[in-house]
Design a binder for these strands. Sequence first.
DNA 1: CTGAAAGCGCTTACAG
DNA 2: CTGAAAGCGCTTACAG
Lengths: 335, 335
Amino acid sequence: MRQVSIKDIARAANVSHPTVSRALQDSPLVRRETAEKIRRIAHRMGYRPSAVARSLLTKKTRTIGVVVTSIADPFIGEVVSGIEEKANQHGYSVVLANSNADPEREVSVAHSFHERRVDGILVTASRVGALYLPLLAEMQVPIVLINNQHPDEFVHSVMIDNVTASCKAVRHLIQLGHERIAYVGDQFGFQSDTERFAGYREALDLAGRSFLPGLVCHGNGKPEGGRDSAEKLLALTNPPTAVFCYNDMTALGVLDVFRSRSIRVPKDISVVGFDDLLIASYTHPPLTTVRQPKRQMGQIAMEMLLGLVSGTDSESIIKVQGELIVRESTASPKS
Amino acid sequence: MRQVSIKDIARAANVSHPTVSRALQDSPLVRRETAEKIRRIAHRMGYRPSAVARSLLTKKTRTIGVVVTSIADPFIGEVVSGIEEKANQHGYSVVLANSNADPEREVSVAHSFHERRVDGILVTASRVGALYLPLLAEMQVPIVLINNQHPDEFVHSVMIDNVTASCKAVRHLIQLGHERIAYVGDQFGFQSDTERFAGYREALDLAGRSFLPGLVCHGNGKPEGGRDSAEKLLALTNPPTAVFCYNDMTALGVLDVFRSRSIRVPKDISVVGFDDLLIASYTHPPLTTVRQPKRQMGQIAMEMLLGLVSGTDSESIIKVQGELIVRESTASPKS
DNA sequence: CTGAAAGCGCTTACAG
DNA sequence: CTGAAAGCGCTTACAG
């Protein structure tokens, strides 16, 4: 049995199919009794209008394409959940595509979105961009970026205020009395790493501390990177008493190394993360970190995009603030 | 500038639009030079065929609807990543919808999928079902369930072999010499809880141990539930020496309570989880658990669905095996 | 090889 | 109020 169409209903109701169309839209142009009869029949037949036929006509698919680097990433999962929530509230569907930060996949995703005529595109935490974004732009559809690494190139984006947030985190360490604070960054050159590093330096400057280049390492945003960096820091003649990490994943690696060396956190050394993943509450000890309002960022981005889709010219960049969550991985240094 | 259509190309190439259509499909019915010229023009104009127009004709959208209870759930994120990977490999797109296990949302998701004429539906770890699944079935499209709580009602599903997996986990504890092994389940009555409990009992039986009802608690699949249960177990006159948890989230809560009471794991008590979430490697101590091949389950389900979509009648239920991952949260009891 | 015609399921002027 | 006509962008018989 194929899907029931407006014509099937017309036949059953003994009217023309445009009348059915009108009745189903509650148009005042159709006699009340006729309309009710039609609706009853439509309901009985389990009729659902075809979004594809409608889209062909209206040139709107009420579909938003969402590109992520990895849907299994806990950070991204939260963001997507905010995106999906807002989309659904407004009657939009979300087409999800994983790019794995693979340029080839990105191109194929862009084409697929284009062919499906999505009404707008959301890009989350992309690490690529230089070549990719113009490709997306080609399809003449609004785009909003979330925490993108190349925000300059595009007008619309929502991102965390990295500088302020990381400055806040480092000031927390300074206030606790730490003198030697390390920064374990992401891969060198990424925008968010550069900004978080800037916040670190700003906090140092604000406190009149001098910057010690030897205390800066670069990981890769993952536990391994944190591990390698922690090893390096511990090998220093004069190791730090606190470590500010680019993100929680990095902090996980750092904590791991400390644990395996029986270095107690926060007694011997303090550790701060960034993101506030679920996991941050369950590390040992629970991690002090900067919370990114992930879900909310997804919601804001979706609303921004929906505004653009409906022609509203909204703000181009929205910065959200991080919140310092003090848990048990930070304390004053031993004196 | 609106999207370029086949007619625009036809005009530019001085041919009819059906000829353009044929050329773009590499049909042998069009002269080679003409075809090449057309393709060149199409490319220059940035032409992308409209999937919506094509779908209207072919009655296939090459779209799969995926319903999840929460995309931010780390378990589900992994599964979805396997789903998306396979879908993409086969030229399908994934429309993602979050149900939040809210019946109202589920109904609206079902309608939305129906209207968009998805070619198939994947339901991940749903907790609802009794009413919902028939609703999905109405749209006459293949459905595959992943770890569903009501698998009986539907033909096609992929799930973890809960009984075997949890039996394996409990045998591990028995082999370590534990006599009093607790089970902290999920909410009472869910299929997967029932099965994991069955595996627990089976392991006990196999070892000739008697079942002690007092050592069974029910949480809710989340840390809080684990916490409450741990408190109860500790209040027992004769507390367990090992705790097998319904899932890693539950184990997190259990570990939390032990930590706050300075009960050492695994020295004083052993803990085992289920799922092997990323977080399981980073708890303190790293958690012994049963790994579900999450990503792979997503892939298998997608392939099963794609088979059904193309008319292949595949197996109806695929059970995958869990793998016991022994980390540092289990040891022999103190003697 | 190529074009005119028809049709997928809908909506919306245009006539009555 | 209601229907016949046209058209969204494509594909595919059907004629030439």
